[in-house]
């Protein structure tokens, strides 16, 4: 089932949580909504689910206008951040809930429900735990029960709110891989919300980067990491450094000095230069480059990170770059470097 969101707007007490958001999700895609807290990603998910009503705009499931339907009619599977398992019901009763509350005519036979529950438990690798209560399960097991419960109603779309948020790092990694695998096997259109970029980049077919109630960029992991289209995406995803620069013809200058790189487009005359710490070289003396004072040097796993102060001593710009492990520089000494991959965003008009 493909999902289309068109010009969606949501206000809470006149404050816009979501502002003119449009998004097309292809059938069977695994989509991550990524953004800092307050970016509107959970609101968007809840609007798709029907747990909130939009102030304006529409949501389409296929050709159907889902925004005219209630949450019950939309037939979605929603996995809540804290799972929201029914604590007074066993695992089996939790999973069967969506089937047992169906009106008499649509409700499967008891034996059929039992069979479906057994199948689902097997699918989430929890066979044998059907008689347990939620408080007798680990976090990762609860998560999978919540997923099985959502899948029991054979949803058109699977929506997950911070699916790994409440788990410890190791379980999180395991479940991440498991969810990708699960998605590939079942082929459901899946949307999940996360604030963890690593999770989004690793798991999703496409990542929707959100900020302040708007979509900043939609693209594959490579797109959003290598070709960020806004200063926000550049600084939000991965590590980055930024410096104010001016462009004069073929030369990019920082504080009037050429820094040895040339712009790709000519229509910018002042903007912010973004680059990633690993995309730098230390040029031989004499070549134009950026120059900074080393304020600290840190060893980080297989690399060495240099903290540099660039510009006037009173109000320097702080920049982090990766330098070869063998480099030996004293704190306070000056270090010259040049970005190899970068992007300049013009100052906001």
């Amino acid at each position: 089932m493909d999902v289309r969101v068109s010009s969606l707007r949501k206000e809470f007490d006149r404050y816009p949580a979501l502002n003119d958001v449009s998004l097309s999700i292809r059938s069977g895609e695994l989509i991550a909504l990524l953004g800092p807290s307050g970016s509107g990603k959970t609101t968007l998910l809840r609007l798709i689910a029907g747990l909130e009503q939009p102030t304006a705009g529409n949501i389409f499931f296929g050709a159907d206008d889902a925004s005219l339907k209630t949450v019950q009619e939309r037939n979605i599977g929603f996995v809540f951040q804290h799972y929201a398992l029914f604590r007074h019901m066993t695992v089996a009763e939790n999973i069967a809930f969506g089937l047992t509350v169906r009106p008499r005519g649509l409700r499967p036979q008891k034996a059929e429900i039992r069979r479906r529950v057994a199948d689902l438990l097997e699918m989430v690798h929890l066979s044998g735990l059907e008689k347990r209560y939620p408080n007798q399960l680990s976090g990762g097991q609860r998560q999978r029960v919540a997923l099985a419960r959502a899948m029991a109603i054979e949803p058109k779309v699977l929506l997950l709110d911070e699916p790994f948020g409440a788990l410890d790092a190791k379980v999180r990694k395991e479940l991440r891989r498991w969810l990708r695998d699960f998605h590939d096997r079942t082929g459901h259109t899946t949307v999940f919300v996360t604030h963890d970029q690593e999770e989004a980049l690793e798991l999703a077919d496409r990542v929707v980067v959100m900020s302040q109630g708007q979509i900043e960029q939609v693209g594959s992991s490579d797109d959003v990491y290598d070709r960020p289209n806004s200063p926000f995406v550049f600084s939000f995803i991965g590590d980055s450094a930024s410096l104010p620069v001016t462009v004069e013809g073929e030369t990019i200058r920082f504080r009037g000095e050429a820094i040895g790189i040339t712009p790709s487009t000519g229509d910018i005359d002042a903007g912010t230069l973004f680059f990633r710490p690993q995309d730098v070289v230390l040029p031989p003396p004499g070549e134009p480059a950026l120059e900074g004072r080393l304020s600290a040097c840190r060893r980080l796993a297989g690399t060495r990170i240099a903290d540099l102060d660039i510009g006037p001593p009173g109000a320097p710009h702080h920049v982090e770059i990766e330098i070869p492990l063998a480099t030996t520089v004293r704190t306070g000494a000056s270090l010259r470097f040049r970005p190899t991959r970068w992007k300049i965003f013009p100052h906001a008009a």
Binding site: L51, F78, V101, R149
Partner: peptide, 11 residues
């Protein structure tokens, strides 16, 4: 939370 879960399951 629990109520929303029940509603999303069609109750």
């Amino acid at each position: 939370g629990d109520e929303e879960a029940a509603l999303s399951l069609g109750a």
